[in-house]
């Protein structure tokens, strides 16, 4: 599976940080989602930039992880967010 190059946070999602972790709320479904520390950082980067390559580059700087593993993790993370309706993939 390849990583989508451009994604956007759904307009129905609001979020709140608490004790260093994010709680996301999808207003359409009234479902809540929790993100851990790394997920929280990825989400914050996503609020600033929709280009996943830029997010990956920044995460490589901040976390002690090899690029292959990070790419796999971010790909999985984004697919989970898409499945939950929290982000949408923008067309190329």
């Amino acid at each position: 599976m390849s990583i989508p190059s451009n994604i956007t946070i759904s307009q129905d999602v609001i979020f709140q940080e608490i004790d260093g972790e994010l709680v996301l709320l999808d207003l359409q479904s009234e479902r809540y989602f929790g993100l851990n520390e790394v997920g929280t950082r990825m989400w914050h980067l996503l609020t600033e930039n929709s280009h996943t390559e830029i997010i990956l580059t920044q995460l490589l700087v901040e976390f002690d992880v090899d690029e292959t593993t990070l790419r796999q993790d971010v790909t999985h993370w984004i697919s989970e967010l898409v499945k939950a309706g929290l982000v949408t993939v923008n067309k190329e």
């Binding site: 709140q16 709680v23 929790g34």
Partner: peptide
């Protein structure tokens, strides 16, 4: 705290999403 946040928000009055800004302010 994150569990408490979900419980409290889910059990506030006016659960509807008719005002996104107010919901974010509530969180």
């Amino acid at each position: 705290k994150r569990e408490a946040l979900v419980w409290l928000d889910a059990l506030c009055y006016s659960q509807s999403n008719y005002d996104r800004r107010k919901r974010a302010q509530r969180l």
